[in-house]
């Protein structure tokens, strides 16, 4: 029973405390990492959903059947832009749980860009948590067909 007399065993108490501290810090770092990754994953899944919705809206608005398109996909009828409001577009394409805004730009032959839809209306778009998708389109006027861009900005309704 020699080891009972061995007083060096007391030293064990002093090494356990720093070891527990190291383990606690390790645990804290590990859980912080897991939490951050989980949070990032959630955020990205939300972004993915927004991307998908934005893509869906932009595809739907530029394909045949859309109130903006007449003859063929990707060809926007400029005459229709004056009569079709954002609300009408939302009646045609309304993803549940999301809201969106549409902007259409037209490019002239010298490359300058002009917003042609909606005209004279302020942008009612929230500052955060929004995603945009765009598509190159041809804009058919009275005689000419010009190059343009349709931009859809999507956000989640709280």
């Amino acid at each position: 029973m020699e080891f009972l007399k061995d007083k060096r065993g007391v030293a064990e108490e002093f090494t356990t405390l720093p070891a527990i501290m190291v383990v606690m810090i390790g645990f804290a770092i590990f859980f912080a990492m897991i939490a951050t990754v989980y949070h990032l994953h959630n955020e990205r899944m939300e972004d993915k959903e927004l991307f998908e919705v934005a893509h869906y809206v932009v595809s739907k608005l530029t394909n045949v059947g859309s109130p903006l398109v007449e003859d063929a996909s990707l060809i926007i009828d400029e005459n229709k832009l004056e009569n079709v409001g954002i609300d009408e577009l939302k009646e045609y394409c309304y993803p549940i749980g999301y809201d969106y805004y549409v902007k259409i730009y037209e490019y002239s032959e010298d490359g300058s860009k002009e917003k042609i839809y909606p005209r004279n209306v302020g942008d009612a778009i929230p500052d955060k948590n929004r995603v945009s998708a765009s598509r190159k389109v041809a804009i058919k006027g009275e005689i000419d067909v010009k190059y343009g861009e349709l931009v859809v900005i999507v956000w989640r309704i709280k």
Binding site: G9, A11, T15
Partner: peptide, 16 residues
Amino acid sequence: MNKRGLSAMQDAILFV
């Protein structure tokens, strides 16, 4: 030297 005193630290280092 009592090597048993170090075993807990070794576990902690392994954990880290």
